[in-house]
Design a protein around this nucleic acid. Structure first.
Lengths: 131, 131
DNA sequence: AAACGGATGTTAGGTTACCTTACATTACAT
DNA sequence: ATGTAATGTAAGGTAACCTAACATCCGTTT
């Protein structure tokens, strides 16, 4: 089992995730409803979150603190996802859109007063050998 | 927050621990009853396990597979605990006992056919930066 | 100002997961 | 054969979680 597997293992119930992220259950479920996260489910339909999910929630929280709305955050996060995909044919229109998002993202990520989160975004990844 | 804290954070419900260790709930509770592990509890009295707890359970399972009984395992594990304590005055009798255990332990640890555990003992620690 | 929509709170009713306790079983040692 | 350690299983109860619905707060639009 490699780190990638470990990071995506469904481990945490929503209660623990609430503590780790200082988000309410309502918020977490709402973000899932809006497809910002996609936690696994137990056989009995209860959510099980991975380290990746928690990291993602911390990012979401971070961006929300900076005034972004969920639609914008969704764009930013999906942008991160496609970056993982190796080579990919892309239409001209898409490229400019993506570049735009890149700019937006670096702008936003810069100016951050810190919130009251117990875990800074990215800190959770220190659970792992490789980042 | 350092790695030591992370390793002892109460994160997992018993259901997840069952999957991680391939132990039954009955077994896990029994080991707690016999003071081999000491998981935290939620406000509602439900067990919450840390990475350390899971590692410990994997060790327990390992030793059980080798034919040790819980009393022996408890000794071995407590032996590991005291090793963390830095310098410590010790009586003559205790020393020989501990040496005996050391020998026992290295003997046992050697000859291991592998069980059907999904996680080898020690593997879980790879969740962390420092081992 | 009023209406709207996004994000979150709250409540209700139902289900799943977990709790302890007690008794049954299995396997090994005496 | 009896005893004990380790585990299974069942019952009854509680905690944690689920969805759905409605309420609230707040910034934006009309």
């Amino acid at each position: 089992m490699n780190d990638k597997d470990r990071r995506s293992m469904p481990l945490f119930g929503i209660g623990i995730v609430m503590k780790l992220t200082e988000l309410t259950a309502r918020q977490i479920r709402y973000y899932e409803e809006n497809e910002l996260i996609h936690p696994e489910r137990t056989a009995g339909n209860q959510r099980l979150f991975s380290f990746n999910d928690v990291d993602r929630l911390l990012e979401i929280k971070n961006y929300l603190d900076k005034g972004l709305n969920l639609a914008g955050i969704k764009l930013l996060l999906s942008e991160e996802d496609v970056k993982v995909i190796p080579v990919q044919e892309k239409k001209q229109a898409e490229i400019s859109k993506r570049e735009l998002r890149e700019i937006l993202k670096s702008e936003i990520s810069g100016a951050g007063r810190f919130g009251k989160a117990s875990l800074r975004q990215g800190e959770l990844s220190r659970f792992f050998v490789n980042r």
